[in-house]
Design a protein around this nucleic acid. Sequence first.
DNA 1: GAGCTTTCGCTACGACCCGTAGCGTAATGC
DNA 2: GCATTACGCTACGGGTCGTAGCGAAAGCTC
Lengths: 204, 204
Amino acid sequence: MQSRTPAGRTGRPRSAAADAAILAATRQALVELGWSRLTLGDVATRAGVAKTTLYRRWAGKHELVVDAVAELFDELELPDSGSLSADIEGVVLQFAAILARPEAKSGLMAAVAESTRDDALRERVRTSIVERQKRLVMEGRSRAQSRGELPPEPDPAEAARTADLIFDMVAGAVVHRTLVSGQPADEEWVRSFTRVLLQGLASA
Amino acid sequence: MQSRTPAGRTGRPRSAAADAAILAATRQALVELGWSRLTLGDVATRAGVAKTTLYRRWAGKHELVVDAVAELFDELELPDSGSLSADIEGVVLQFAAILARPEAKSGLMAAVAESTRDDALRERVRTSIVERQKRLVMEGRSRAQSRGELPPEPDPAEAARTADLIFDMVAGAVVHRTLVSGQPADEEWVRSFTRVLLQGLASA
DNA sequence: GAGCTTTCGCTACGACCCGTAGCGTAATGC
DNA sequence: GCATTACGCTACGGGTCGTAGCGAAAGCTC
């Protein structure tokens, strides 16, 4: 969240309702217009807010969209299904459902594109979107290890590298399937994906 | 390529040099300015071409950038290394090297973002970028099957689904590693990735 | 309630980029 | 030479950006 009312502050506080309205209006505009045609003036009108109010809280289009899209990922949870493959399938299906929404499609990729040139934006994407997803990977792997489904990893540096690799493989595959190939990551696809991820290609 | 001089045509032909200059200028502008700050007027000036000439050949920023970025992928080739894992590592390293270039980073993701709302643009991305990559997957798999490294797939529909899955996993992982996680897909990473892809997570 | 502080809505503004129209000129084929 | 198309150049209306300035509103402290 960009706006944050510091604790011991005097004066009129910022309206939390305005924040919510602006972010909701941003998502609605993403659905109807997409990233490139979205304008801050239009978002302000939709939210019933003056354009200047919007600029007091967000530096620009990029930051606003990242925050608006980040809220979509709040609902991500790791189901405890009892087996690693079921855990993976469950969380991947959730992730795919979010990515299938039009406001996520156009907003997320544009934010990633811009974050390649803007370090502050990259950091914002990382903390508000990527890190939350990665924690699910860590937790799922830890569960699987305690179940004996995955081998334990004594070296913490090596464990971190493996977690990064798994994360890039899972999130990357779903994103590529949904946004580049333009096809749904449905249950059948998720089952096939999980089988390859766990067993490998050679084991068919 | 947007411009195409039909065969039996009268009048002054379009300058092929102008096409090359415009696409090169677009890539240079992507490096220096990124997607969002790139303007067509600026590209025209860099290319030593009138702005109107640019508009006669490309409908807009999106199409131009897709064509400019697509040329980067022309150099992709499948090395015949004798083993499936070496083939994969070789082609993934090439792909990673292209994605590491700044003009590819900012341009490609922005084009994908916009293609989620524009069917014509999606088709252009598909034919000029994605399909070329996918052919490498098909060919690599066919080689591996003839070597006995991968099981044959009698059902053509099932074979196509598997090829799509592999493609999304390979390209998705490299793209996510490079652009979202923001870390290099170097040789060490590629080796780990290939091992997981072929052997699976459970086999460590 | 008085006074202070900060936010809010509104209007207006210069700056920039977009995409197109119009015109004269250059380059090709017949 | 003649028709045809591409090119460079200029100019233009329209839209968006991001900011400044103002008076009013909403809190807090005393």
